[in-house]
Design a protein around this nucleic acid. Structure first.
Length: 587
RNA sequence: GGAGCCGUAGUUCAGCCGGUUAGAACGCUGGCCUGUCACGCCAGAGGUCGCGGGUUCGAGUCCCGUCGGCUCCGCCA
């Protein structure tokens, strides 16, 4: 028997045709006489009917069918009797009247139901991932992921890009995340590193004159896992020569539009809005703002500076800030909810969370009301556009803490009060990033983006004098509060690259040892170039409405980095270690 | 490195203040059933209460430790 159709494609137009379907038994309904089977494949579900009169042999065999048996069915497409249509199925108007049944394989009862209803613990799903992936919900995510990849390739190929592979075995470089290391048998004591991204290779490809590169590529970072972070993840990576910021932004807007239209049938409105890093931080407390709702942050440091409330006055007059969020119309929230919000804020470093409810007459109901004069209350109220029924939340501390706390509070308020509209797609470009930030732990500057990001031309002279004021030619694309892509125009002059390394306190010898090949390459006719990389997993997660990237990765790892299917990582034989000149020190 | 939630039948869960033989639904097995679609009806099987220790006359329940899953902080150029 040869399969003729999949389980989603038969309609009333096929009535009377003989077809062959193959798939898995989702459910069997045995009436003693008639037997109904819901047959499932990766595309959908079709009902098959076994009748003792029409096909006695097939009917007899059908008694033995159980969940997840694999079968082939030859039969005719029949219109369902009047009133027997199933509107829940795409194929609900028809059914297959079975003439011949072949059982291709039997199955043990599955360890968990494949129904769409009900959650099954993730540990069991991951152990039996091959069964989990049969669930329509999972198959759909994997299919959309495929369609996204196809749309990316289609669009970039049409734009003249070459898809080029870069090494998985590469060298460990300083900066960035912890590397996964791979011992090199032929050079005892030396290690490859798995790439955190193909950054340097793609820049070298530009120097090679290939002009337009892309790759859908695996990246590895040995850091702790989160709902949106796996140790290996996939980037849509691109690099172009002879371009500036706006070229890349326009390219990406075209690409993202194409992808959403192809994979989801959704039309996006371009261009996407843009926001500077500073504005994003001031208004939303984060460089990846979720702009589907308001609740923006406002600065009240000026009033706070002179008020009688010690906490505010101290913060505002000793280098910190006082900012506030007006939770419009949420003034009726309970004391208990305020406590929960305070606890939430504390998790992000808040020492407290001052609040003010605005009464009917405009006056303040608040534990801190007594510290403010009438005039101060009015100025704050005016600044926050407060009116009766609102509740204001304040953060007073060092600026970074206040932004973090209120930014998170803003999200929590929106989540609790249903302000986040699921179907809205809110894209925003963030630009004008600073080139450097201070790393407390290392006690030196660090690149906000990475050390190959170009400084703005007009800021070059600040590199040695006021490095904090140097702005980067970098841009991030944010969708609904998640950073889905980031890139920059790169440094293409060796002298500038050396100056940036020096600003990062990377000694010349070390820079030469680790990045000498890059600086040398830059000296052989490197064209101006730039690029961007997208987190494919996160993008597909958002496109499919999933809450974790594990749901859009076929074989993800647990929070401890384990693969529950294969039990990786696992110990290896001593002979393997010896061959690699590795000396175990843990026994 | 740290904080929190969870772990009882194949699955999802209930199990009160520590007290008799640990329950339900779905699934599974057997039987009946010719228009079901989460089919229905009857009967049955199925438990290392994650693991180890402690308290107690007595622990699924309380305490300590440990393992595992998840969420978060730190970390993630």
């Amino acid at each position: 028997m040869k399969r003729t159709h999949d389980c989603a494609s038969l309609t009333e137009g096929h009535i009377g045709q003989e077809v062959v379907l193959m798939g898995w038994i989702l459910r069997r309904r045995d009436h003693g006489g008639l037997i109904f089977v819901d047959l499932r494949d990766r595309m959908g579900i079709t009902q098959v009917v076994f009748s003792p009169e029409a096909a006695p042999a097939a009917h007899k065999k059908a008694h033995a069918l159980r969940s997840e048996y694999v079968i082939a069915v030859r039969g005719t497409v029949a219109k369902r009797p009047e009133g027997m249509e199933n509107p829940k199925l795409l194929t609900g108007a028809i059914e297959i009247s079975c003439a011949e049944l072949r059982i291709l394989n039997s199955s043990q009862p599955p360890p968990f139901p494949l129904d769409e209803e009900g959650e099954v613990s993730e540990a069991i799903r991951l152990k039996y991932r091959y069964i989990d992936l049969r669930r329509p919900r999972m198959a759909e995510a994997i299919r959309i992921r495929h369609e996204v990849c196809q749309a990316v390739r289609e669009h970039l190929n049409n734009q003249g890009f070459f898809e080029i592979e870069t090494p998985m075995l590469t060298r460990s470089t300083p900066e960035g995340a912890r590397d996964y290391l791979v011992p090199c048998r032929l050079s005892p004591g030396s290690f490859y590193a798995l790439p955190q991204s193909p950054q340097l290779y793609k820049q070298i490809l530009m120097i090679s004159g290939l002009e337009k590169y892309y790759q859908i590529v695996r990246c590895f970072r040995d850091e702790d896992l989160r709902a949106d972070r796996q140790p290996e993840f996939t980037q849509i990576d691109m690099e172009l020569s002879f371009v500036e910021e706006d070229d890349i932004i326009a390219l990406v807007e075209g690409l993202v539009s194409h992808v959403f239209e192809k994979a989801l049938g959704r039309v996006l409105s371009c261009p996407f809005p843009r926001l500077s890093y500073d504005e994003a931080m001031e208004r939303f407390g984060t460089d990846r703002p979720d702009m589907r709702f308001g609740l923006e942050l406002r600065d009240v440091s000026e009033v706070a500076q002179t008020c009688a409330f010690q906490v505010f006055r101290h913060a505002a007059s000793s280098g910190g800030v006082v900012k506030a969020v007006n939770a419009k119309g949420m003034g009726d929230i309970s004391r208990k909810e305020i406590d929960e919000l305070t606890e939430h804020a504390a998790a992000f470093g808040a020492k407290g969370l001052a609040w003010v409810k605005i009464r009917e007459d405009g006056s303040w109901q608040s534990p801190i009301a007594k510290f403010f004069t009438q005039e101060e209350m009015e100025r704050i109220g005016e600044h926050l556009e407060a009116s009766s029924g609102d509740i204001l939340f304040f953060g007073a501390d060092q600026k970074s803490v206040v932004l973090k706390v209120l930014g998170e509070l803003r999200l929590e308020l929106a989540r609790r009060h249903g302000l986040i509209l699921r179907d809205v797609l809110s894209f925003v470009w963030i630009g004008d990033f600073p080139l450097f930030e201070y790393d407390e732990e290392l006690g030196r500057l660090q690149a906000v983006h990475h050390p190959f990001t170009a400084p703005r031309e007009e800021d070059l002279d600040l590199l040695e004098t006021e490095p904090f004021r140097v702005r980067a030619r970098a841009y991030d694309l944010v969708l609904n509060g998640t950073e889905i892509g980031g890139g920059s125009i790169r440094i293409h002059r060796p002298d500038v690259q050396e100056r940036v390394f020096r600003a990062l306190s990377l000694p010349d010898e070390e820079a030469r040892e680790k990045f000498g090949f890059l600086i040398e390459a830059l000296s052989y006719g490197a064209p101006p170039h730039g690029g961007i990389a997208f987190g494919l997993d996160r993008l597909v997660m958002l496109m499919t409405g999933r809450e974790t990237i594990r749901d859009v990765i076929a074989f993800p790892k647990t929070q401890k980095g384990q693969c529950l299917l294969t039990q990786a990582p696992a110990p290896v034989a001593m002979t393997q270690l010896v061959e690699l000149s590795l000396k175990p020190g843990w026994d």
